[in-house]
Structure formats: C-alpha cells, structure tokens
C-alpha cells in the first residue's frame, strides 16, 4: 500500500494559485519593482564610484580607526570588476536586498508578536522549524508554479528561506528583556504599546540586528540557489560553470560570492555593534 501527500500539496498550491492570483500578482509586482529599483540604484553609478561608495560606507560604519574592511572591499570589488562579474554581482546584491527587505517587513512584526504572546509563539515556532529544515531547493518548485521563472520566484523563495532567523532573533530579543524591567514599566503605568516601544524594542535591538545579519546571509546563499529557476546574477554564472564544465568561471563566481558575503556580513555586524555602543552611551 502506498500513500502520497505530494498530490495533495500540488492540489493545494494550484488552489492557492487560482484563488489568490490577485494577491500573488500584486506581491510579484511589488518584488519585481523593488528588485528593479535596487538594480537601477546599484547600476546607476559607474562601478568605480560604487566601489568607492561601498568602501567608504564600510569605513564609516566600522569607525574611522578601523580601515581593514574598507581596504578589503576596495580590493575585493575591484577584483570582481576586473573578472567582468560586476553586473552579475549587482543583480545578486539587488536580489538579496529586495528579499531581505520583504523578509524583515514580515519577519520583525511576526517576531514581535511571538515575543509578546506565548500562544503566538506556540503557533509560529513549528512553522519556523518547518521553513528552516525543508531543503532550500524545495521552495523553488511552488515559487515557479506561482510566479513562473525569473527573478521574482527566486526572490520569493529567498524571502521564505531567509525569514526564520529574523523572526526567531526578534522573539528572542524581546524575551530576553529582564522580567523586572518589564514589571517596572508596568508598575509605572506603561501601556502595552509604550512598553513595546520604550522598553522591549530598544533592549531587543542588538538581537534584532543579529537577525538582520542572519537573514542577509541566508538570502545570499538562497539567491545563488535560485539561479536554478532563472534568477540570474552570480548564481547564474556558477550554474553556467557547472553545466558547461567551465571550472574557471565557476571558481571566479564563487570568489565573487564570498567577497560579497564577507562584505555584507561585516557591514551588518558593524551596524549591530554600533547600535550596541550607542545604547551603552545612552
């Protein structure tokens, strides 16, 4: 005897596609718009100008005394440019930014809700577990079914894949606020909203920023995988390297991904420690 849940899932996805077609169209259009916007912004300036801006941003965020990251990004991105991977890199960056943005827009509020309500957390937690353990490739199939091929389904799969840590770390940050601080704000007559804005969110900020960092990193890894459904960018180059057995191209694209990943990680990290410093200064 056999039993498959696959067909039911297929039916479910098809039903979703037809029933919520308006919603998915709008969502797709929104994602498409934000990817294009990011692409245009990153492609607007000359690559050298972009490289300088990115290096300068690194210098500023890390503090003027730490110029290591600035030098790294200057050299790294120049290398990318010389390897003729600049436009692919910028597309990948645009995809990462657009999907991260949407992931945060959904993830942070969900995380806040789960951080303030035990019941919400009980519902959200298994869903997150599911989202995180399901192999990344599997997201690509319904994404294709709903959004067909291209950047949008790639970004959509990325959003789903990259959201869990943002939700989790937001929830964690809220839950880490000491009980007596919460009690104090309650004793002084703070409303739930005041408690959230004046106490919980500021104290959870480092944790939330750690979540942002994780989301960006996961988004980057997923964006590369999403090349399989035509998202393009550096992942597309890797895929070409594999299918055409061009070791050199695959390696170069891999290097570019590593450089971009390190840059994004250090930048968001610096953002986090910056906010922690600000918090301590008061």
């Amino acid at each position: 005897m056999t039993f498959h849940i696959g067909p039911y899932f297929e039916t479910f996805i098809n039903w979703m596609r037809t029933t919520f077609s308006g919603f998915f169209d709008a969502l797709g259009a929104l994602l498409d718009f934000s990817i294009t916007t990011f692409e245009n912004v990153f492609g607007y300036a000359h690559p050298f100008a972009m490289i300088l801006i990115m290096s300068f941003l690194a210098w500023w965020l890390c503090g003027w005394k730490k110029w290591g990251l600035a030098v790294f990004s200057l050299l790294g991105f120049t290398l990318i440019y010389l390897m003729e991977l600049w436009s692919h890199t910028m597309l990948t960056l645009a995809l990462v930014m657009a999907s991260t943005l949407l992931a945060l827009l959904i993830g942070v509020p969900v995380g806040i809700y789960a951080g303030r309500s035990e019941r919400a957390e009980r519902v959200v937690r298994p869903i997150l577990d599911f989202m995180q353990t399901m192999p990344a490739f599997v997201y690509l199939i319904p994404a294709v079914l709903i959004f067909s091929l291209g950047k949008v389904p790639g970004a959509m799969a990325t959003v789903i894949f990259a959201m869990p840590p943002c939700v989790r770390l937001t929830t964690l940050g809220l839950r880490q606020v000491p009980k007596d601080v919460l009690e104090a704000s309650e004793a002084f007559g703070a409303t739930p909203y005041q408690q959230l804005v004046k106490v919980q969110l500021p104290m959870a900020l480092p944790s939330i920023l750690a979540g942002v960092n994780q989301t960006i990193m996961l988004a980057l890894s997923m964006v590369v995988i999403a090349a399989m459904i035509g998202a393009g960018g550096l992942g597309g180059q890797v895929l070409r390297g594999i299918t055409q057995l061009r070791i050199g191209l695959g390696f170069e694209s891999g290097i570019a991904i590593v450089i971009l990943a390190m840059y994004l990680d250090r930048i968001t990290h610096a953002l986090g420690s910056r906010s922690a410093r600000m918090q301590k200064k008061g």
Binding site: D180, E183, A184, A187, M203
Partner: peptide
Amino acid sequence: FSMVFQHFGLLPH
C-alpha cells in the same frame, strides 16, 4: 503608586 525593585529594573539603553 511607585515601585522600587530588588534588581533595580532600570532601562540599560
């Protein structure tokens, strides 16, 4: 009312 707590309950930020 006002309340004073054993572990102060101050806002670190």
